[in-house]
Every structure is written in structure tokens, then in C-alpha cells.
Design a protein around this nucleic acid. Structure first.
Length: 582
DNA sequence: GCCGTTTTCGGCCCGACTGTTTTCAGTCG
């Protein structure tokens, strides 16, 4: 459930946390850990905040007070933090690296350094091969074997998986568990239930009267490779696909409390439990309890999540929002947004056919989209400069238009729009002449080259392209590929301002490795009041099934149905397009 | 070190599992 730090600064903050934990400080470890998570979650935004608003601005961020803000300031000024350098001199240990191994916490890292001078994973491996760990006070053969096992897994680990990849696998596990006669209810929890774009593991909960039988069934699933731990109430396993799955088993009566407990991210849960304490309650996976002086706490809510939040005088934040950000305040003030429901998208406005790099004909794509309940799609094949994708020039585009006209005559209750995914050239001009663009129903523009321009050049390039009056939509705006390619450097505030000015839609792209816009940028766009579209970028008929992934980003970005243009029906959509061009 | 309808001091979430220990510390979520 924990989000691993992805940048240098959050790693340094986590090393502070580990160091203070080794020193047995009571509360600093938690404080630095929170700050580390906060920094990791904010990505590039933190540097921007520092640039724009300095230390004061940093202190506004969750988990960051005066002390840590000053350290962050020092880091951006000098590239290092004196106190961190000092710690490293005293204890030259790759604390972050070692902490990535499951089961190796601060205390162990400290002992390994103190007794064996282990600084990093290489040292650890050597020590294990010489059976040094099992000789340490408080350690034994089993402890050493466990660390050895986890070290191997760490080296083979595929790390986090894309939501689009892991979700179907996780849903299969739920289906399999539900087949067991002892299982009453079973649900996904954790980061998958929140629909985080990548997940480090699969969290599940199940209810039963026979916990041990359910734990047995779980550990024996065909997807399971090995068992890490197996108790009466929970089990943790490694799956063949290379990540872990954790199951928590409880009585059916407390399903809601357990689901609540294992869905929120750490910050949401900690904040909620603190709030519960303020209100005279205590909250755990067993329920919400009223604290009564001199008596045993009294159970007041556990059946449903809603019951728990309601008892705390709050609305229930949808799982996608439970990240410990502003959703708790909104829930207390009864001002949670009405999120776009799953299944709201009526048509797909980015689809590639076999005219360029798609695998299916336009007709096959139309049939697939229609059978999935969609009312329209825009065929948006690539343009000529993308030779590798067999991009279309003006002449082939006109020919394609005729084919679409013929198909539209045949199709009942489904409309194919003539479109393009027009390449944005390096200088911001478009890869098709305006004459050709103006004949299309839907013009999407996208960057496919020169990803590493400076922010100034890249922003100017995209702004120029967006200002073309024929343009309807900016496809996959940041061009990031999760785990493969960084986002291009764009001033998103300027892009959003331009989108508003020129009435250009921004896309939420559903491809599992794109998910672009991401949740945070979606939120900024929603706050700015601009319209978005959710597109699959389909290259084959089965890609239409990915629409729910884009809907999950929209939900995480606090978007309502009205924020997403392609939740409208065909008639309303066409009316919007006409209005845009007038 | 952070934070505030208990606000500049004095709190800081809670429970399961493991291994090595005869009652608990460390780790995790």
C-alpha cells in the first residue's frame, strides 16, 4: 500500500526517517516518512512550489513544516543537505536501498551496520553467504533465511505493475476465491481499489466463518508461487507474475470496517483515525468504537463503509479519492464531487485503423465499439510524417473519408467520425494543410518526436499547434510512458489556459502505460473548468475495453460527468463540434 | 518533526504475523 519514493529528495527524506528510527527517536521517523511520501506524491510540483513560493509555500504542503521545508530549500539550493551528509559520514549505509528489501526495517539495518559493517546489498549478500546474519544477537537461522529469500525476490522483482495489467489478474483472483464455499464476500482493497495508475501489490479482503479454510484456499490458488506468511487472519503470497498478494480474512459482520481500513492509503487512514479520536471514537479494521470512560469501548459501526463515515458526520469518499488529500475536509463539509460513474463514456474519439498502424479495419472497429455499447467513434489515423506508422497524407485521408461515408450508410445507431491524429511538427505547425483539416469532423493533434525540447520551446510548440482553429483535441498531452519515458516538459498552466481560450479538449488517454493526462493534471484541468475527453487510443477492437481505466483517472481527478465531453450522446457531441467551429 | 474546534505545548493509529524470546521486538500495511 505504501508508495515507494521515486525521486532523490524523497529518498533522502526517507533516509532521515530510517536514521532516526535506528536512533530510537519516537516521532521523527514518522514525520520524515510522511514528508517523504508527500514529496514523492507531488512529483515535479514540489520544485515548482519551491521556485514560486519558497519555504513558506513548502510549509503549506502536507507533512512539511518549518524544519523539513528548510532542508528542502537547502537541497534545491546546494544539491545536498548538510545534516544528511553528516549522517552519511557517521553511517555510510545505503539505507534507502536496503530498506527496499521486505522485512528489513530500520532496526535491522542499524544492527547489520553496527555488527557486520554492512553498507549495501552487495555486503548483505556476502554476509549471507558466510552465514553471518544468523550469529547476530536476536537472530537465528530462520531470520537469515527469510532475508535471503526476500533479497532474491527483490532482485527479481518487477516492481510496480500497471493498473491496466494487474487489475484483470486481481479480478480473476477475486472470482476464484468467491468460488470457495466458505467465502461469503470478497473484494479488492488497497491501491487497486483506489485505481492508482501503478500498484506494488494486490490487497484483498474476504469474509467467512472458517478463516483457516479460506486462508488455505488462497495459499493454494493456481496463481500463487510461494507463501510468505500464513496466519489465522491473514496471508501474504508471491504470485507467478512476480508481485505479492495479501489477503485479510474477517467475519462477515465487519466487512465494511475491514474494507474501509484496507482501502484508504496510509495518509487517509491515519488522518481519519486521528479525526475519529478527536470525536471520541477509535477506529480499526474491526469497526468504529465509541470510547466510554472506565468501560469497554462500544462498537457503533462496522457493517458498511458508509455507516462508519456517517457516524463521523462525514459523506463517504469514493475509493479513488481516499489519498489523504482534500477529500476528508470535503467529506466533512458534505462537498464531495459527484464523480463520473463508470460506463459513462458514449464514444471513443481516438481510434487507429489498419489504414495506419492499427490492426483492424474501420468496419471491424465500428462493430466492436458498437457491441460494447458505444454510439460513435472517431477514426484518427496518424499523418504522413509518422512514416513508421504508415501515416496518411491528404490524398489517402480523402479516400478514407469516402469509405467512412459508405460505412455510415450501412451502420444503424452508430456514427463514425472522420478524424486524424495529426502530428505536431517540431516548429508547432501541423502535418496536414488547413484545407484538409477543415474537412474533418474531429481533429486530434499529438507529439511523436523531439520529446526533449526545453520547457519553453516545447510549450511554445504545443501552444502554436493548439491555436489552429481546426483543432479539437490535444491527444496524450504529456507523452509520458510509465516506466519508459518521462513526460515532456510543458508548462501545464499555460496549456490549460490555452485549452480554455481556444476551446481545445485535453485527452485522458486510457492506454495502461500512458494514462495521460494523469490524475493530478486532470484535477488541475477540472479546477480550471476546461472540457476533457476519455479515449482509448485503440489500435485493435479489444482496446475499447480499456475505457474504464480513463474513467478511473477522471474519478481520481475529481471529474464529474459534465467535465467529460464524450459522455454526451452523438447528437450532443456533434452540436459541440459545430459550435466550436463557428 | 508536524500539527492545531485540545493551537505555540504536548500529543502523535492500530493490530497481525514472525522469530526468538518465555513476554516481546521488529516489520508491515
Amino acid at each position: 500500500m505504501v508508495m515507494k519514493p521515486s525521486n532523490e529528495l524523497s529518498k533522502i527524506l526517507l533516509e532521515f526517517s530510517i536514521y532516526h528510527a535506528i536512533k530510537d527517536d519516537d516521532f521523527k521517523p514518522r514525520a520524515y516518512e510522511l514528508a517523504s511520501e508527500s514529496v514523492a506524491g507531488l512529483g515535479n510540483q514540489i520544485r515548482q512550489t519551491w521556485k514560486d513560493e519558497g519555504i513558506k509555500g513548502l510549509m503549506e504542503l502536507p507533512g512539511i513544516g518549518e524544519g523539513i521545508a528548510k532542508k528542502i530549500d537547502e537541497y534545491y539550493r546546494n544539491g545536498k543537505i548538510k545534516e544528511h551528509v553528516k549522517i552519511k559520514r557517521e553511517m555510510p549505509v545505503e539505507m534507502f536501498q536496503l530498506s527496499q528489501i521486505e522485512g528489513l526495517g530500520p532496526k535491522h539495518i542499524g544492527e547489520l551496520w553496527k555488527h557486520l559493517k554492512i553498507k549495501n546489498i552487495k555486503d548483505l549478500k556476502q554476509a549471507i553467504s558466510k552465514n553471518k546474519l544468523q550469529e547476530l544477537p536476536g537472530w537465528g537461522k530462520k531470520s537469515q533465511a527469510k532475508i535471503a529469500r526476500r533479497l532474491k525476490l527483490f532482485e527479481k522483482a518487477s516492481g510496480r505493475m500497471l493498473l491496466g495489467v494487474i487489475l484483470p489478474i486481481a479480478e480473476d483472483i477475486v472470482t476464484d476465491l468467491k468460488k470457495n464455499k466458505h467465502v461469503k464476500r470478497c473484494s479488492l482493497a488497497g491501491s487497486i481499489r483506489r485505481r492508482q495508475e501503478t500498484c506494488g501489490d494486490i490487497d484483498l479482503i474476504a469474509t467467512t466463518n472458517s478463516p483457516e479454510k479460506v486462508i488455505d484456499a488462497f495459499c493454494g490458488l493456481r496463481q500463487v508461487k510461494s507463501v510468505h506468511e500464513r496466519g489465522k487472519a491473514k496471508a501474504s503470497v508471491r504470485l507467478h507474475i512476480g508481485i505479492d498478494a495479501d489477503l485479510r480474512v474477517v467475519r462477515d459482520e465487519i466487512y465494511g470496517a475491514t474494507l474501509q481500513y484496507f482501502t484508504g492509503n496510509k495518509r487517509h487512514n491515519v488522518l481519519l483515525r486521528q479525526y475519529a479520536l478527536e470525536k471520541g471514537y477509535t477506529l480499526s479494521e474491526y469497526g468504529l468504537f465509541k470510547r466510554i470512560k472506565g468501560k469497554k469501548d462500544k462498537l457503533v459501526a462496522c457493517k458498511t463503509e458508509k455507516q462508519i463515515y456517517k457516524q463521523l458526520r462525514m459523506d463517504t469518499p469514493p475509493p479513488e479519492l481516499r489519498v489523504g488529500d482534500e477529500e476528508l475536509e470535503a467529506a466533512k463539509a458534505h462537498k464531495l464531487p459527484k464523480l463520473i460513474p463508470y460506463g459513462s463514456v458514449r464514444g471513443d474519439l481516438q481510434v487507429q485503423s489498419d489504414w495506419s498502424d492499427g490492426s483492424a479495419s474501420i468496419e471491424e472497429l465500428a462493430q466492436a465499439a458498437k457491441s460494447q455499447g458505444l454510439q460513435y467513434m472517431a477514426i484518427t489515423d496518424h499523418t504522413e510524417s509518422l512514416t513508421i506508422a504508415n501515416g496518411l497524407n491528404e490524398k489517402r485521408l480523402a479516400k478514407q473519408g469516402k469509405e467512412i461515408n459508405e460505412l455510415n450508410k450501412k451502420l444503424r445507431g452508430f456514427k463514425i467520425l472522420k478524424g486524424t491524429e495529426c502530428d505536431i511538427l517540431k516548429d508547432g505547425t501541423l502535418d496536414l494543410p488547413n484545407k484538409a483539416l477543415s474537412k474533418l469532423d474531429f481533429v486530434g493533434i499529438a507529439i511523436h518526436s523531439h520529446f526533449s525540447l526545453s520547457q519553453k520551446e516545447q510549450t511554445a510548440r504545443v501552444l502554436k499547434a493548439m491555436s489552429n482553429p481546426n483543432v479539437h483535441c490535444l491527444f496524450h498531452p504529456t507523452c509520458r510512458l510509465i516506466g519508459k519515458r518521462e513526460a515532456i516538459k510543458l508548462d501545464m498552466d499555460e496549456i490549460i489556459t490555452a485549452a480554455k481560450k481556444h476551446r481545445v479538449l485535453l485527452e485522458i488517454n486510457c492506454m495502461p502505460d500512458r494514462m495521460d493526462l494523469n490524475d493530478r493534471l486532470t484535477r488541475s484541468a477540472v479546477q480550471a473548468g476546461i472540457k476533457l475527453v476519455i479515449n482509448t487510443d485503440a489500435h485493435s477492437p479489444d482496446h475499447f475495453k480499456l475505457l474504464h481505466l480513463g474513467e478511473s483517472i477522471a474519478r481520481r481527478g475529481w471529474a464529474a460527468k459534465s467535465d467529460i465531453l464524450n459522455t454526451k450522446n452523438t447528437k450532443q457531441l456533434l452540436a459541440w463540434i459545430v459550435k466550436k467551429s463557428s
